[in-house]
Design a protein around this nucleic acid. Structure first.
Length: 903
RNA sequence: GGACUCGUGGCUCAGCGGUUAGAGCACUCGGUUCACAUCCGAGGGGUCGCUGGUUCGAAUCCAGCCGAGUCCACCA
């Protein structure tokens, strides 16, 4: 830990009447960081560190609200809370090189800077005029621009990340680790190179995996095409007509498939037809993948350009023909269509079929079409030689880990989704045809075609170990960006070296991220962690929902992406963080709004002003805090009922908030915090702490109570609102408190709940209900707001005697316990008589209304207790119901008596 | 086709077996202006999607249905 410096004056001397986050946030964050508060302290024996990896944002990206929720809401909340619980906490930052996305971003930047450049058609991702080395030079250059941007945004959110351990997935040492990982996986047989059908994006010029593919609904022409019989057939043999939306691929057909149980066709399996235009003889084969309901039940099989057809081809040993290249142009194999792009070729083919009389009919069809999720370009399935990762064996241990609880997923229903995917996992194509990314450590010999994979600690090979040729060349592809991020939890800690960090911080604790990257990242981290480390990377996966605004999923194309940066600048990070987390339950999507942000801002300001009040009281009575702060009844005999009440409520809240955070119920934590701070501390206690409301001689007790309660409140609120709380704590701690203080809330201790006075809490609660009712009666009775009113309490009012002064003060009444002439109102079994101008008619109406309500409640109690409830329900529950019945009986009796008097 | 989630006051959501179902925002009324570009107080507003079932007791558990959304596979 760096030596901590004194907190900046901009913070300790900030005295704004309202909290202006801009005045202090940057100073405070810089101080936290330079003081080393965010780095885990020196290792201590027996410690249990809390370790979390930041879900690395794309280096070229900007933070969006989802990040703000994730990083500034849940993760920083957890990091700060665990740190305050005394656990050495490591929250490790970094960014992802974001392969294809970053390459596209920089290509656009280059285009802006140097004018539009025509892309070379044979290598779509190449900037014309730039060699691969030059282009990568540009990429690195731009990284220096983007990296600080994204890191600054994380700092603005207040994220307590350990910046001494920041990593970037393309750092040279990370590249080395990825290389070693690749080589080890290869040597163990988890990686192989194969010629298979893959998704190809014509816009991005690269392959992509199933996960990066999505479907859109589109309407196309469905063409029915007749495939003439190759040999003379007996009369009555039906024509073979297939339905296709891609007639241009007919030229690559190598079979026609029908369902083996299809009565219309099964007798014809094994016969041959001629592929139109190509005039090639192909067999009719039987395969269960064919949908009998679709079209005529006969399917043209094009293994070179369709996923399903490729699989059918594999099963039947069919030849794979290619008629479309990586630019989307028809190849020489397409004969008359060679050179046309795929869309033109489609029309041309239809024309030709029509001319030849082979086009039976056409109709529009609405169907799902696979597209690349990055750019919505329609998928062009191609057969290419690619590196693949064999997934099922890697998935097995990860499935087991979740099944046996080693790693727990929250919310639990996501586990089902995890299993579903993992148990049906398919091999992962990991090579990408772009330049920005991790190189594949494989060389190919041009002379003997050997595949050369060096040992993990060997330098790049220069000669072929098989034939000694020097004509070898490295695989030009790079690895999928998720290949490197899958290693993040161990590679950032030094793997494969057995570093101190790796030993101390692996396995980690929690992985918090959006459910949308469960497969992309979480599952893969688990698999690679288990493979490389023999242990899971985290014991808990907390998945949060999406943040929507205006009820729409935010996306760049919809143009409704709202930047949290502007919100922070306007309202402060605390307000934003609070607004995002408040009232959202685990895993649920949430709707964000200006209103929520406004509420967050006002809550932050409320806290600030409670602080201003507390500090002013403390300053006014400096002697009150001399010596240790003891607010136990023994240590402070001058405490009033109100002081003891708020102290007890504070302990109750500490207990409750601790439980909520422990159970990952962050939304409820935020709500409960606001409830306590606003309705109890501010609206009730602060009012009762004002000198003009204090019984003489209890002023010092109020100051001590305020100091204690406020200190607890700041700690309890710090995980979600770090800036305003630490500013206040630093100022509060200037005054005399000697015990339990820290240089900053960041490194202070989370409160341990102390003794409560439950009876007092209950009775005080009753007093508050009574106060409410008096206020209501005053208003409805037309009493002048400032005027004093006389109130008599009777019935079961004895427990309220200690609170006479409080009731009087907060309701503007002179209170006695004698009963009186006025018509009462009932709160539970306490009769309240408020002296207001009598109006017998109004009294009667009101009393009747109250009586009706009371009778209904009484009836409910009686029905309940008259049923089997009394026999079957647990004793404490029945006891409660009995007490309620008694109270309701008393209330009804009292109201009846009063009504009788009126009549 | 398979699976999952959600349907609670005008809006956004909590609550997920036991008192008269809560919060924020919005709304109505009344105050205040040396903690609070505000704040305080009071109030109106809910057949907890529908129909059955389990239970002494269901917004909460189960089944079916209706509606909204998501994921996985496929759509030639």
């Amino acid at each position: 830990m760096a030596s901590e410096t004194k907190a900046p004056q901009a913070v300790t001397q900030y005295r704004g009447k309202n909290f202006d986050a801009r005045a202090i946030e940057t100073f405070l964050y810089d101080w936290w960081e330079t003081s080393g508060f965010f780095a885990p302290p020196e290792e201590r024996p027996g410690e249990k560190p809390f370790v979390m990896m930041l879900p690395l944002p794309n280096v070229t990206g900007d933070l969006h609200l989802g990040h703000a929720l994730s990083f500034g809401g849940y993760e920083d909340l957890m990091a700060r809370w665990h740190r305050m619980r005394g656990e050495p906490t490591l929250w490790l930052p970094g960014s992802d090189h974001a392969g294809i996305i970053a390459q596209i971003v920089v290509e656009k930047e280059l285009a802006k800077e140097f004018g539009t450049r025509k892309k070379q058609p044979e290598a779509p991702t190449t900037q014309e005029g730039l060699s691969r080395e030059q282009f990568l030079g540009e990429m690195w250059h731009w990284m220096e621009h983007y990296k600080p941007r994204i890191y600054k945004q994380l700092r603005m959110l207040g994220c307590s990340l350990d910046w001494t351990r920041v990593h970037f997935t393309m750092d040279p040492d990370m590249q080395r680790r990825v290389r070693i990982h690749f080589i080890r996986l290869y040597q163990k047989g988890h990686l192989y190179r194969a010629n298979r059908i893959v998704h190809w994006c014509l816009t991005c010029g690269t392959t992509y995996s199933d996960l990066e593919s999505k479907h859109i609904i589109r309407t196309d022409q469905l063409s029915y095409v007749r495939y003439p019989w190759a040999d003379p057939m007996p009369p009555g043999t039906p024509d073979v007509i297939v339905a296709t939306t891609r007639p241009e691929t007919i030229l690559a057909d190598t079979a026609v498939a029908v369902h083996p149980d299809d009565d219309r066709w099964k007798a014809l399996i094994g016969k041959e037809v001629l592929v139109p235009v190509a005039e090639r003889r192909v067999k009719i084969i039987g395969d269960a993948a064919v949908d009998r309901e679709f079209g005529t039940g006969a399917l043209k099989v094009t293994p070179g350009h369709d996923q399903t057809d490729f699989e059918i081809g594999q099963r039947h040993g069919l030849q794979v023909l290619s008629v479309i290249d990586t630019r989307g142009l028809m190849t020489a194999a397409a004969g008359p269509l060679a050179g046309l792009d795929r869309d033109t070729a489609r029309t041309a083919m239809v024309d030709r079929l029509a001319t030849k009389g082979l086009l039976s009919s056409q109709e529009p069809i609405t169907h799902a079409v696979g597209v690349h999720e990055r750019c919505d370009t329609v998928d062009e399935p191609l057969v290419m030689k690619q590196w693949w990762m064999r997934m099922p064996p890697l998935a097995k241990p990860a499935i087991d880990a979740v099944r046996n609880g080693t790693t727990k997923i929250i919310p639990a229903y996501q586990e089902k989704i995890f299993f579903e995917w993992m148990e049906n996992i398919r091999d992962w194509p990991v090579s990408r045809q772009i330049w920005w990314g991790h190189a594949i450590p494989v060389w190919y010999c041009r002379d003997c075609e050997a595949v050369i994979v060096p040992d993990e600690d060997a330098p790049d090979p220069t000669t072929c170990p098989m034939c000694r040729s020097t004509d070898i060349r490295q695989d030009p592809d790079v690895l999928d960006t998720w290949f490197s991020s899958a290693l993040w939890p161990h590679s950032t800690l030094g793997w494969p070296e057995q570093t101190k960090d790796l030993e101390r911080f692996y396995p980690g604790s929690v992985l918090e991220t959006g459910y949308d990257i469960l497969f992309y990242w979480v599952a893969r981290m688990m698999m690679m962690g288990l493979e490389n480390m023999g242990d899971v990377p985290f014991h808990t996966v907390y998945l949060h929902g999406l943040v929507r605004m205006g009820n729409q999923k935010m996306s760049k194309s919809k143009g409704n992406v709202v930047s949290p940066v502007g919100m922070i600048e306007e309202h402060g990070a605390d307000a934003l963080r609070y607004a995002l987390v408040n009232g959202v339950s685990a895993g649920a999507d949430s709707e964000f709004s200006e209103g929520k942000l406004e509420n967050g801002r006002r809550f932050v300001n409320k806290l600030w002003n409670i602080g201003r009040f507390a500090l002013a009281q403390i300053e006014a009575r400096p002697g009150a805090l001399a010596g240790p702060l003891d607010v136990s009844p023994a240590g402070s005999p001058d405490l009033t009922e109100a002081d003891r009440w708020i102290l007890s409520r504070t302990e109750a809240t500490a207990e409750e908030l601790t439980r909520l955070i422990e159970q990952y119920q962050f939304g409820e934590y935020a709500t409960a915090l606001q409830q306590f701070v606003w309705s109890e501390v501010a609206d009730v206690y602060v009012e009762l702490a004002k000198p003009q409301r204090r019984p003489a001689g209890s002023e010092d007790a109020a100051v001590r109570t305020l100091a204690y309660v406020f200190d607890r409140v700041l700690r309890l609120a710090h995980p979600i609102m770090p800036f305003v709380t630490d500013t206040l704590a630093l100022q509060l701690w200037e005054y005399g408190r000697k015990d339990d203080v820290a240089p900053s809330l960041v490194v202070s201790r989370w409160p341990v709940a102390g003794q409560r006075e439950r009876r007092l809490e209950d009775r005080f609660g009753l007093a508050i209900e009574v106060i409410r009712r008096i206020r209501e009666r005053r208003q409805h009775g037309g009493v002048e707001p400032g005027a004093k009113v006389r109130v008599s309490l009777s019935g079961e009012a004895d427990p309220l005697r200690p609170f006479t002064g409080i009731i009087a003060s907060l309701s503007g009444a002179d209170v006695d316990f004698g009963g009186g002439a006025e018509a009462p109102t009932m709160v539970r079994s306490v009769e309240i008589r408020v002296a207001i101008p009598r109006d017998a008619a109004a009294d009667r109406t009101r009393l009747h209304k109250e009586l009706d309500a009371a009778l209904q409640l009484l009836e409910q109690s009686r029905t309940l207790l008259g049923s089997d409830f009394a026999k079957r329900a647990p004793a404490p529950v029945v006891e409660k119901a009995r007490a309620a019945l008694a109270e309701r009986q008393a209330a009804v009796a009292s109201l009846k008596t009063e009504l009788a008097k009126l009549d």
